[in-house]
Design a protein around this nucleic acid. Structure first.
Lengths: 338, 338
DNA sequence: GATTAATAAGGTAGCGCTATCTCAAAGTCG
DNA sequence: CGACTTTGAGATAGCGCTACCTTATTAATC
């Protein structure tokens, strides 16, 4: 019988660590995974051996043997929006130091793409998933349910048995903006929305409801499914001025649009806030430097990422978070534009 | 002997596909990986069986058996800069349809963090790595060399045996800006840089060299290692006005800074471009909407991502790209601010 | 037509790790 | 003090796939 060439990677293996520590492989495995049933003295020997050999576990072998990886999947609708970047960073800051690795999936606000990502990434057997909002295809939801992987939902809230979510009330935020504009004496309000994901619509609803509560006529709406951008903001602002020239208060569904509108106003000589008050959403970096400085709703996107990751961790430990739907609130930052 | 409970995942396996197709497992494996030595007829049978069973390969098993994953690691210095987002998206657009999955590592412009990410992700046995620039710790470079994983470098160019890179000449871009400002009659030039990564310094060098070539005094420099932001741009602009009030042309190392400066100029009543010409870098979305519309250098960041991914693919096939250092150029977009 | 070379398919043996079971030793209790 | 539980460690057997070697078949060469 000829010797087959080794197919090994050359990296130190658990077997070598175990041999060096004078214990069995499985004991070494348990020690390195901090499983309680190992004598502390043995555990120390194992850790010393691992350090001496510069042992790094092989995640593929681990995943294959346990049918569960150390990866956590995070699905966001866009990377182009700075909002989600901050959420992602916070998620990574929580998970990476704890030995998880974060897989990022960007579905470009498309349900079919999200479904495809879920299908694809489930084959990696992630140990947990962070999702944005509740709006997804039935197939996607079924895939997730069948996989039995713990999920935490970000950005939106829903009080429902078995649902763990971290976010804030988009409706309440929308209402707050309406109340603010009305407190400034604005009566001819408008809402400008792009992209039109579930959260934009929720903000719109909250905004309109607050207006209805004081028996004002509903806000004029300009809505487009186009992706949001600074340029689009300028266009929609112009459209609004043409269609409803006497508008005196606008809530843009996000800051990008509001930025574009502000530029256009400067160019056209439309006085903000003298003639029209403008409010954005998210309070992105730069909102406070705009001319005029932009009133916006500061959303807790980083904290949402952080707490979503922590909630997922507790799910992974078999615990249920005390508050399954965690409301992190928001804050209206009033500046010159209103 | 008691029956052990199955540890299987429940998902269909290659063995089932093979059985259904009436071939051996290894033939099924080869057929699904499109390895040439399989009879097309058998291959069809295998593919049909796989489809019928909704078979999805187990990446962990694949990685373990072959000591090589289907993952490609991309390391970028920041996600907060929109520039890299576009590069990442282009990379993903090339690699995901071809069955690779993209691992994103963000090292926050810190060499130690990059090193840590490399160390960590190498344990996943990625089949290729995309890196940003050439500036990294020696340890990191050694780790990469020892791993023997194909690498492609993005953003910067270097003519060197065995180095595959895709980018453009940062120096040439800097020079181009200087020439443009001088062509507008500007003589008292300044350079404002933040973050100060290698690429910012290269742009600065190109800028200064172009100025030196026509025997003008060197540009005044304001340099700070702080992370770049709109707010910082305003601060640095004010500092520049105080320290060198007669400056008549400024090159900001990126658009964020230029945005902040523009806002501050509007606020202070400094006339751009009448009093000072301003040029940014990257031509981020929004540059064309600024007041005044910002002159900027449009960088091919998406194309860089695309070509870097393609070059990596050819390395994976054992080919060497015809042009190992691919210069994708840049374009000065002249607008109102200069 | 015998020998060699190329080709295609399959058998076998892991890759490196962990789940499960087994067993010995120690602790617990009526 | 014997029967029962608890505890810690090890033996065993895969997880699902692919690399390597071998063998069967066909094509090419002398």
């Amino acid at each position: 019988m000829k010797d087959r060439p080794s197919r090994a990677t050359g990296r130190p293996t658990l077997a070598q660590v175990a041999a060096r520590a004078g214990v069995s492989q499985i004991t070494a495995s348990r020690a390195l995974r901090s499983i309680a049933t190992v004598d502390p003295q043995l555990a120390t020997r194992v850790h010393d051996a691992a350090k001496a050999l510069a042992y790094v576990p092989n995640p593929a072998a681990r995943t294959l043997a346990s049918a569960r990886s150390q990866s956590i999947l995070v699905l966001v609708p866009a990377l182009s929006n700075h909002l989600f970047i901050e959420t992602l960073e916070a998620v990574q800051d929580v998970l990476r130091p704890r030995g998880f690795d974060v897989l990022i999936g960007n579905y470009h606000y498309r349900q079919d793409e999200e479904e495809e990502l879920i299908r694809n990434y489930l084959s990696f057997q992630p140990c947990g998933i962070l999702l944005t909002g509740f709006n997804r295809s039935e197939t996607a939801a079924r895939l997730l349910a069948n996989a039995g992987v713990p999920c935490v939902y970000m950005m939106e809230l829903r009080q429902e048995e078995g649902i763990v979510c971290v976010g804030f009330s988009q409706e309440a935020a929308g209402a707050k903006v309406a109340e603010h504009l009305m407190s400034r004496g604005r009566r001819k309000l408008a809402f400008v929305g792009a992209q039109l994901d579930a959260r934009v619509l929720q903000r719109r609803d909250g905004y309109q409801q607050a207006i209805a509560r004081v028996d004002l006529p509903p806000a004029f709406e300009i809505m487009t499914p186009e992706p949001s951008s600074v340029e689009l903001g300028g266009d929609l602002f112009n459209r609004l001025l043409t269609e409803h020239p006497n508008t005196d208060g606008i809530f843009f569904c996000n800051d990008d649009l509001a930025f574009g509108a502000s530029f256009e106003a400067l160019r056209k000589g439309v006085a903000i806030p003298a003639q029209i008050s403008v409010v954005g959403f998210n309070d992105l970096p730069g909102a406070g430097q705009m001319v005029p400085r932009l009133t916006s709703v500061r959303t807790p996107r980083a904290t949402i990422g952080e707490h979503a990751a922590l909630s997922l961790l507790s799910l992974l430990c078999g615990e249920t978070p005390e508050i399954p739907a965690l409301d992190l609130g928001f804050k209206l930052i009033v500046r010159e534009s209103s």
